[in-house]
Simulated assay, not measured.
Amino acid sequence: MALTTSFLLLFLTSLTLTVAANTAYPTIPGTDNSDCAVSGELKPVRREIYGEGQIYDISHRYTEDMPSWDKTEGLGQFLWLPASIKNGSLANNSEMKLPTHTGTHVDAPGHVFDHYFDAGFDVDTLDLRVLNGPALLVDVPRDKNITAVVMESIHIPRGVRRVLFRTLNTDRKLMFKKEFDTSYVGFMKDGAKWLVENTDIKLVGIDYLSVAAYDDLLPSHYVFLEGREIILVEGLKLDGVPAGIYSVHCLHLRLLGAEGSPIRCILIK
């Protein structure tokens, strides 16, 4: 009986550890982790949705094959392990090198205005009160860029300060294709101007590497960032998230002197 009891306690302890590990390491959708406890193999799990839709992770996972601005072969290697336990080091210590406007990221005014860059308007000066709070996720008509006509048709009411725009980019899964695609959907200058003049929006989020359409790249950015009141979050992962009202939480790195930064964004229902 003592042997049986000990075995049972060992089994329950092992099961508890497995459950704890699964909670700590979320799962990629479609990944089968049902055999983890049976095989005894350590296998981290990952997920995009927590609590059956209570929390959505809308940040893209960094991979070598993710798109990078104007590149055809994707981001490429960005992570190295110069110090590893296997090679005799006391611990594993990775190093990372990547453009600050890679994946899900934020723009600061110094991104397109050199006088703002010189004056120090970097990502460390961005207002966390703008990057966190109630937000609206809307679907943009899929056959066109975001023009003044499109903005007017969406009917975003006054008082809404944060809007995430889901476009054809999500349907085409452009953020999962390593080749940069200039045909992505974004804001035209007149659409950006209409937003600035006719709404209270201070956080603009979009689902590809630039909030501005490729053909109106700098003009749209100028309109958004000239007043230093609007914050742009680009490269959002909006697939599988129902349109509606959420609480958005975006936290970037405090990179002194940088005009952009990777950012982690989640939606809480």
Rank of each mutant, 00 (worst) to 15 (best):
M1G: 06
T5W: 01
L12N: 01
S14Q: 03
T16Y: 10
V19A: 15
A21Q: 13
N22K: 15
N22V: 11
T23Q: 14
P26G: 15
P29R: 02
G30T: 00
S34P: 00
V38A: 15
S39W: 00
L42I: 13
L42T: 07
P44N: 12
R46H: 09
R47N: 04
E48I: 11
Y50A: 14
G51Q: 09
Q54A: 15
I58E: 01
I58Y: 01
T63Y: 03
E64K: 12
E64V: 08
P67T: 05
S68Q: 09
K71Y: 06
E73H: 09
G74W: 02
L75F: 00
G76V: 04
G76F: 07
Q77R: 13
S84N: 01
L90N: 11
L90R: 14
A91L: 14
N93A: 15
N93I: 15
S94F: 01
M96V: 13
L98T: 03
H101Y: 12
T102H: 11
G103T: 08
H105Y: 07
V106L: 10
G110D: 03
H115W: 05
F117M: 06
G120C: 01
D122V: 04
D122S: 14
V123D: 07
D124I: 01
L126Q: 00
D127A: 01
D127L: 00
R129M: 02
P134C: 06
P134A: 05
V138S: 09
P141F: 04
P141I: 06
P141M: 11
K144G: 08
N145I: 00
N145G: 06
V149L: 05
V149W: 02
E152K: 15
I154K: 10
R158M: 09
V160F: 04
R161T: 10
R162E: 09
R166M: 13
R166S: 13
R172P: 01
L174K: 08
L174V: 10
M175D: 01
D181F: 10
S183F: 09
V185T: 13
G186A: 09
M188N: 11
K189A: 15
D190Q: 03
G191M: 05
G191P: 02
A192E: 08
K193A: 15
W194Q: 00
E197Y: 06
N198I: 03
T199Y: 06
I201C: 08
V211P: 00
V211S: 10
Y214E: 15
D215S: 14
D215I: 05
L217M: 11
S220D: 11
H221I: 05
L225Y: 07
E226A: 11
G227Q: 14
G227D: 14
R228G: 03
R228I: 06
E229M: 01
V233G: 02
E234C: 13
D239W: 11
G244S: 02
Y246L: 08
H249A: 06
H252V: 00
R254S: 09
E259Q: 12
E259W: 11
I266A: 10
